[in-house]
């Protein structure tokens, strides 16, 4: 369960006396196993919202709750524990360049201190789920964009997180790969993981017909079940 309670995020803009408002009094409640699309143009505050959830940024006002834990109060030292409960997928994949697909996924488990036996079992399984079992020993530069994103999803998935946050995961992909990734996220959602998908891709949102939260200039302007992309 995720709550946003009256959350605002204001950045200090260099050289400008007006503060930059990224998020303005957001109230939001996300139930387990939902599939949510976060819509809005660039600069609407979608990424900031996700950054608050993984503790990369702290809200200026209000509180963000994840599974009954107030994220404002988590120190830098304990952030890794929170991040192991959340899977994160980025537009630019953010894989470790000098590690193979297998090692990239295994890294998330190693960092959490899981045993070699568990890693040996789970990593091939997850790579199989995303359809990359045969490319486990490839380095990121040897993989296509779609394949890289699937490695990233496998890495997000391997902790068995309750939530996966995907920030424009298809932004760097062609149409075919885009739908592969969306289908993969839907499949993961069916297996019981909450998915929050931030995107400005009209086609994706209109075809999903799931809950859509629309942000514009930092404000939550629409929240509809089975929504469409309207601006």
């Amino acid at each position: 369960m995720i709550y946003f309670e009256n959350v605002s995020k204001i950045y200090n803009c260099n050289g400008s006396s007006d503060p930059c408002v990224a998020l303005d009094s957001i109230n939001l409640r996300i139930r387990p196993q939902e599939f949510i699309s976060l819509a809005g143009p660039s600069g609407a505050g979608k990424s900031t919202l996700l950054k608050l959830l993984i503790g990369e940024e702290k809200p200026t006002e209000g509180k963000v709750m994840l599974d009954n834990q107030n994220l404002n109060l988590v120190s830098l030292k304990h952030l890794p524990e929170i991040r192991r409960k959340i899977g994160m997928v980025f537009q630019d994949f953010r894989l470790l360049a000098n590690r193979t697909a297998y090692e990239n996924v295994a890294f998330a488990m190693e960092a959490a201190g899981d045993s070699n036996k568990e890693i040996g079992q789970d990593v091939p399984q997850v790579l199989d789920v995303v359809g990359l079992a045969d490319k486990r020993d490839y380095f990121p530069h040897q993989l296509s964009g779609g394949e890289k994103q699937r490695v990233a999803i496998a890495r997000a998935l391997v902790h068995r997180p309750s939530v996966i946050l995907a920030d424009e995961p298809t932004g760097n992909l062609d149409l075919l790969n885009t739908w592969d990734i969306i289908k993969l996220l839907l499949k993961i959602n069916e297996l019981g993981t909450t998915i929050i998908l931030a995107t400005h891709d009209r086609d994706i949102i209109n075809n999903l017909s799931r809950r859509v939260i629309t942000l514009d200039k930092g404000k939550l302007i629409r929240d509809e079940q089975k929504g469409r992309y309207i601006l």
Partner: peptide, 16 residues
Amino acid sequence: KDEISVMRLVGASNWY
């Protein structure tokens, strides 16, 4: 530096 931030984001502790 980018790699380090990725490691942080997938839940690695500073010491790790």
